[in-house]
Every structure is written in structure tokens, then in C-alpha cells.
């Protein structure tokens, strides 16, 4: 037990000493991990925001509007709503009378609502609004609606939603690939950087082996050094990414809201997640980097 503690203590002490004595190399490793995480972070933020925009856009399109014929009675409509409410994929079906629809319009038109007062009679039909719980279920819901009598027209933005979903899926898939690619690159870059530090200490390692050090004893300090560098890089890059994000939000947030009618993902929400993701990534990149780069030197 005390031997274990001794060797852990040794590994930590050595890791700090090594990192400090080889500070140029430590700095180089840190710089490359930070750079990678920065790119990764900016990319991550972009993807999260695109996802959020597409989600909120989807929500705007998740309603099917069913226009009823003028002669359809409220009772008939209620029967339709009743049977729809039990259907798979339907979140909520509600009745919207022509007066309510007009009132909604007036709200939307705002200051110009007085123009609507000029209408002699209400041109809007009674309708049923159906919110679908899953967009994928919209098609089956629509075909079910078609079986009812007294329906004038069905409107829903299938093509738009399909397009949107296609684009989102494409972006998500592309993002996964690029993130994976970036992680692989950073492991390679870091393992090469650490390999240089190991190479500089090749002699030291061979001496360690002659004196009877186990592979883990030799690896320990390098591993901890790699992890330390990883954690530090994570902290730095989270800081920089957050700063960039907050600045961007300040500058572009309002514009984006106007154009896409969606807000940007709150910075605090992202920062907390980024800290976890980056720390985990930094630790794994640092650890993998040092283990990979040491493999050659530890083969007996």
C-alpha cells in the first residue's frame, strides 16, 4: 500500500518536474491541443445552433391545418377531433372557428388590423388544428383525415419539413464525421509532439529499464503529464470559445433573431457542456497521445 502511494507520489512529482523542465515541448503540446479543441469547439457551437434553429423551425411546421366545408357542423367536427385525438402521432387536435381564426389574423396584422374590418363577411373557414407529436407520423395522420367527410382542404408543410429534416440530418452527419476527424488529427498531432519529448528522453527511458523500472513506472509520469496538458488546454480553449461565443451573441444575436426568428443557444448552457466535453477530450487526447507515443520505447 505504501509502495503504491510512493509510486503514485513519484509519478505526480515527476510529471510536474518533467512538464516544467521540458516547458518548450509542454507548451508546444498544449498549443496544438488547444488549437484543435478551439476548432472543435467553434464547430460544435455552430452545429448546436443549427440544430436548435432547425428544431424551432420544425416546431413551426408541426401543425396540420384542416379546413372544413361551410356545411360541416360543429358536432361533425367534434367527432373528427374525438377520433383524431386517439390516433398515434397526434399530440393535440383543436377546433378553430372562423371568428377565432379572424381574431388570430388581427393579432398577427397588428397595427394594420383595421384593414380587416373592411371585410363584409369572414372569408376564413372553420378549421381543425392538429399538432403532431412526431413529424414522421404526419403522413399517416393526413391519410386518416382524408377518410373523414366534410373536409375542404388539408394543409401542411410536408415538403418544407422534409427538406429541413434532410438538411439537419446532413449537417448532423457531416458534423459527426468532421468532429471524429478532428479528434483523430489531434491525437496524431499530440502523440507526435509527445513523441518528440519522449525521444528527447529516450536515453533516460533506456536507463530506467536497465535499473529495473516497470513499464507502468516509466509510463506513469508521461501519462500524467499528458493528462495535465490536456486539462490545461481544455480550460484555455473553453475560455476562448466562450469569449468568442459571447461576443458573437452580442453582435449577431439580434440580427439572427430577426432573420431566422430563433434565438442563439444561451452561452452559459453551452459553456457548462463544453467544460465537460473538452476536459474529457483533453484528458483522452493527452493520455492516448502519451501512451501511443511511448509504445515504441517500451517494447522489450
Amino acid at each position: 500500500m505504501s509502495a503504491m502511494l510512493n509510486s503514485w507520489g513519484y509519478a505526480f512529482k515527476q510529471a510536474f518536474k518533467q512538464a516544467f523542465r521540458n516547458r518548450t515541448m509542454s507548451f508546444a503540446s498544449m498549443f496544438s491541443i488547444t488549437a484543435m479543441l478551439l476548432i472543435l469547439g467553434l464547430f460544435f457551437i455552430l452545429v448546436v445552433n443549427i440544430n436548435m434553429a432547425s428544431e424551432s423551425a420544425k416546431k413551426q411546421f408541426d401543425t396540420i391545418q384542416v379546413y372544413l366545408m361551410d356545411e360541416t357542423t360543429f358536432e361533425q367536427a367534434s367527432a373528427i377531433i374525438g377520433s383524431l385525438n386517439g390516433t398515434d402521432g397526434v399530440k393535440e387536435a383543436t377546433y378553430l372557428s372562423d371568428e377565432e381564426a379572424m381574431a388570430n389574423w388581427k393579432v398577427k396584422w397588428g397595427d394594420n388590423a383595421y384593414l380587416l374590418d373592411g371585410l363584409e363577411n369572414n372569408p376564413l373557414p372553420n378549421s381543425i388544428l392538429i399538432k403532431v407529436s412526431r413529424l414522421e407520423a404526419a403522413d399517416s395522420v393526413v391519410s386518416k383525415i382524408k377518410t373523414f367527410d366534410g373536409i375542404e382542404d388539408i394543409k401542411y408543410y410536408k415538403d418544407t419539413v422534409d427538406q429541413l429534416m434532410k438538411v439537419t440530418r446532413f449537417i448532423q452527419f457531416g458534423a459527426m464525421i468532421i468532429i471524429l476527424f478532428l479528434v483523430i488529427i489531434s491525437v496524431v498531432v499530440v502523440s507526435n509532439t509527445i513523441k518528440l519529448t519522449v525521444l528527447a528522453r529516450e536515453r533516460e527511458i533506456s536507463i530506467m529499464k536497465y535499473v529495473g523500472a516497470t513499464n507502468w513506472f516509466i509510463r506513469g509520469p508521461f501519462l500524467i503529464e499528458g493528462i495535465l496538458i490536456g486539462i490545461l488546454s481544455a480550460m484555455i480553449s473553453v475560455g476562448i470559445v466562450s469569449l468568442i461565443y459571447y461576443k458573437t451573441m452580442e453582435l449577431l444575436g439580434p440580427t439572427i433573431f430577426v432573420i431566422l426568428s430563433t434565438t442563439m443557444v444561451p452561452g452559459g448552457f453551452l459553456a457548462v457542456r463544453l467544460i465537460w466535453i473538452f476536459t474529457a477530450l483533453g484528458i483522452s487526447i493527452g493520455a492516448c497521445g502519451s501512451i501511443i507515443s511511448m509504445r515504441r520505447f517500451l517494447d522489450t
Binding site: S2, I207, M208, V211, G212, F217
Partner: peptide, 28 residues
């Protein structure tokens, strides 16, 4: 083991070079 070219760790002092061999075998 002792070599012709000594093989001391250049960044460690004399004391540390010797202590190192003991650290490896987990001495306190």
C-alpha cells in the same frame, strides 16, 4: 549494471541519479 559511457540522467543531480534507482523499487 555499469556502462562505459556512465549513462547518468543529465537533468538529475548526483543524489537524484542514485535515489532514482531506489524510487523505482518503491523505497520510501
Amino acid at each position: 549494471i555499469v556502462f562505459q559511457d556512465f549513462r547518468l540522467l543529465p537533468k538529475k543531480t548526483v543524489f537524484e541519479n542514485v535515489a532514482f534507482a531506489m524510487e523505482i523499487v518503491h523505497m520510501s
